[in-house]
Design a protein around this nucleic acid. Sequence first.
DNA 1: GCCGTTTTCGGCCCGACTGTTTTCAGTCG
Length: 577
Amino acid sequence: MPRPISNKTVADTLYEISLILDAEGVSFKPQAYEEAANTVRSLDEELSDLYKKCGLKCIDDLPGIGQSIAEKIEELLKTGRLAYYQKLKKKYPLDLLELTNIQNIGAKTAIKLYKKLGIKTVADLEKAAHAQKISKLKGFGQRTELDIIRQIAFKKLSRGRFLIHSALPLTESIIKELKSVSGVTHCEVAGSVRRRQETIGDIDLLITTSKPELAIKKFVSLPEIARVLEKGPSKIMVRYRFGMNGDLRILKPEEYGSALQYFTGDKEHNIALRKIAIKKGYKLSEYGLFKGKKHVAGKTEEGIYKTLGLDWIPPEIRTNSGELEAAAKHQLPDLIPYGSLKGDLQVQTNWSDGESSILEMAKAARAAGLSYIGITDHTQTLAVAHGLNEDKLKKQITEIDRVNKKIEGFKVLKSTECEILTDGRLDIKDEVLKKLDLVCVAIHGRTKMSSEEMTKRIIRALKHPLVNILLHPTGRIVNYREAYKMDFAQVLRAAVEYGVALEINSSYRLDLKDALIRQALEAGAKFTISSDTHSTGGFADLQFGIAQARRGWTTKADVLNTKPVDSFLKALKGLKK
DNA sequence: GCCGTTTTCGGCCCGACTGTTTTCAGTCG
């Protein structure tokens, strides 16, 4: 017996119908469906119970629900589906409920954005807004685009946690301001920002200063701060404009290290570390490491770990999952340093859904400190992204040759984000793929297959002799979408066997996630870290991919694009043997 | 599509506001 359809499902369905009808310019029906949805939403009794009790008549008797809608509800309750609704959804396969939940986005706007830009979800919307695609549409402007970005940020706030992508730049600008205040000797962020977690709850700032009143005055007057929630002599709590909360703690210099350690966490790591301290006859707290009453360490984090017989542990891997044991044995991995990437292997241009030309992206990459990029425009199956067919890809190859002659000390590699079809074949012919410097593959469509089908699909693509990198391997999107159902261990074995590197995607996907990176590492996989940028500003995101790699215990040697272009290509091709 | 009866079809809220336009469309309340 399937679970009975909930009132919420019925109400959502009716409401979505009203949105679609409204967008289609139908008169009066939308209000009727909306009214019916509201009635259902506010019912105390479950419709399925009501229906069992007295059938269609009781539903028809509800205010705002007449014969037609009552019959639709009956169909839903009986079969779990509604043909009328599904017909509409086929025409408009976008998440209208989610999209119209954003301020100033109504059904008409949502459907217009779907028709023009293929936007189906808030994630798509955000991506398009950041890529400045919306302001280019007729009837939309820059204000609207910025407002969309702001509104989406607010939505994320309501979920409680923000992406590191927005939290870190905010944190860094505040630290910069505070460091410029007279008397400040240290200023650093602790907590999940320092550990570079995917999502951030609040921003914990620590400072030491000889003039606390000046630092406090500066802090509470920062434009980023919306409201001061609490203000004492050593701790200030605020709400930032983007909705995140944060603390500023003013510390004594001799406690700075122990406070930094304590507030950085994570909790499991701290508990385990305190147990080690107890075992060795110490007591560890945010105020220092004590032997009896004697303060033996606490000015620096290094001093605390060292006194306990441990190497200093990078914040990203403080999770109590083997790092303390490794630190005791002096066997911590030498994590890939920030800023150590020489190339970016996923870059979209205006040949598909990116916003800038190949040359503009190359110049921006060079300015960001890189010496090569791979151009990975989408391929033909991804029509919404204006994917390239064989002819266009060949033309792009010629264009890249031209760009390479124009730009010195930099290399643009010919590549592709080639779509993996449902059965695992690629949607570009081998004869064209062969002309590329490297071939990246990815999945965008038909993501909801069974685990068996998906595993088979990906492995078939990995087996293709020309394939070098699997992009965003699991399809997950932070805070938004789970990974596809698949047998990751099998995919991993195939990647290693067929010599395909796995991408660590630096965008809001952060795909692979840390645990899978570590699993892949143990299986002998190699990685590339890429930005997946669609605009010239996107190369800054690479730091988040590095953070992700670090949380997965990855070293420089594990990440192929830490190498200069020639040895990168050699190493990548070398995986095939 | 619902409602309310004037029992079988006509009425259903609409103006403020905003961003984009240059006279309007869409959202919100």
